[in-house]
Design a protein around this nucleic acid. Structure first.
Length: 117
RNA sequence: CAGGUCGGUCGGGCGAUUGCGGUUCUGUGAACACAGGACUGAGGAAAGUCCGCACUCCAAAGAGCAUGGCGCCGGGUAACGCCCGGGGUGGGGUAACCUGCCGGAAAGGGCCACAGAAACAAUACGCUGUACUAACUUUUUUAGUGCAGUAAGGGUGAAAAGGUGGUGUAAGAGACCACCGGCAUCUACAGUAAUGUGGAUAGCCAGGUAACCCCCGUCAGGAGCAAGGCUAAACAGGGACAAGUGCGUAAGCAGGGAAGUUGCUCGCUUCCUGAUAAUUCCGAGUUCCGGGUAAGCCGCGUGAGGUGCGUGAAAAUCGUGCCCAGAGAGAGAUGAUCGCCCAGACAAAUGACAAGGAAACCGGGGAUGUUUCCGCCUCGUUUGUUGGACAGAAUGCGGCUUAUAGACCGACCUGGCCG
RNA sequence: GCCCCAGUAGCUCAAUGGACAGAGCAGUAGCCUUCUAAGCUAUUGGUUGUGGGUUCGAAUCCCGCCUGGGGCG
């Protein structure tokens, strides 16, 4: 995932978490809110409860790898935060990819839903 | 062959598809962005942040005190609380080997609960002598009080004042004697030294604790890359606080005041040292408070760097040759999905070796030998299943500590068998 | 990343190196009350975060880990 499309500032994270809509799944938490810049930003986070530094990094990498194929089909102008949860470390890739795709469809963030389905 | 000890090395490999960070090249295009290519991208502990340095800022990094660390000896180093070698003194192991401790308790202070007579000293449980009193009364003995002597005795305790035996005495005591042990001073030899082995002298006054204070020696100025420097933007043009004197025309000097020196003092550095009749106003600063910005660049990787050879008892210690192209993020890159292989583990089949067991034979009998069958363990081959731990750079190094599936190499020890 | 601090009963806190580590609240049982609350009495509950060391003796002193918390530009 290119660095341009990432959510960076701490204040941005605070804004999205305070004003955004939340969708909870056993593997992750998805928070999103529309912005005014027509540019998509995605932030990935993993808390201390996930484990040590290796496990936190792995969780974030897997989430980035899963969101990668959907980048071009997202509605422009949305800020998204993905927060990893503990079972994500042991889940298979297929399981995680399907769960994430379903989450994106339900929340109507994709531009072309027929292609996505 | 089995079990173990010590030291060292490695800590999965190759490929495909698709992504990310860094450097660089090419093309398009106005800055600057986009597209494509090439090279490259975590560790032995990157961890804990426990020590030591480099580096940066505090004017320079000065003195004394305080505070803190360290503490047998020698060597190494930029330095260390680290490493190597040696010494003393305990503990564990059959052994190889592992492991605790290390200046001073005769400079001084404190503490040593309970128990005990007493915890370093005497208002003495006891023992002995003696005077007096009382009981009984033939002597004796017993009890109490006073005086004097005593650390031998029992028992207490973690610990009881050199030990054993004797002389001696009213009872006792290194008071004296013999042997043994420890300490101090002087001294000879060996060793760079710690120290070791001897000799002489007088003495036993000298319990433990310094991870209690302390004394001696030695080291340390403080803060930390969010250090610090530059650029841009933004807010504000704020509030608090002292001295306010003398000489001099003035500059300045002296005195005074504020701040800094990340504890204190000295020293040093910076700044201030005015008005008014009066209330009062003014009043510096690298000070304090309050407010604002959290964007970019540098610091930032050639370094106490790797590696071969030599030197050395050893310490990647020193000397020397060669190679340096190869991580530098900033919500923080090195990933995701597969395929093949390789250590290793388990199961099955099969082969080799074979502790041993059974039967038969040779032989008068035994030791022993020969043949056949069964065969723990170990190793090899094939097939199947499974299968790689601890863990992620964030200024950089030297150590320490802690976590870690396993694999390999070398040296040594113990036991069994064979020659 | 760098630098600090703390850990004692279920909770909040005490304890000069010295006997079985205390106090309040909470819990349990009893008394009181028609019943409950309040009150009174008794009682339960601790590897002093953990592993070593110093000491005759450690919650306390020293060292290593674990867990939790705080600060900075």
């Amino acid at each position: 995932m290119d660095r341009r499309y990432r959510l960076k500032k701490s204040s941005d994270f605070q804004r999205v978490r305070n004003t955004g809509k939340t969708y909870t799944h056993p593997l992750f938490v998805l928070i999103y809110v529309p912005n005014t810049t027509m540019q998509t930003h995605i932030g990935v986070a993993a808390g201390r409860s996930i484990g040590n530094a290796v496990q936190r990094n792995r969780a974030k990498r897997r989430l980035r790898a899963c969101i990668q194929p959907w980048l071009k089909q997202l509605i422009p102008g949305v800020d998204i935060i993905l927060i990893a949860r503990k079972p994500l470390l042991t889940a298979s890739y297929d399981h995680l990819a399907k769960a994430l795709a379903k989450a994106l469809q339900i929340n109507h963030i994709l531009t072309d839903e027929e292609y996505a389905s």
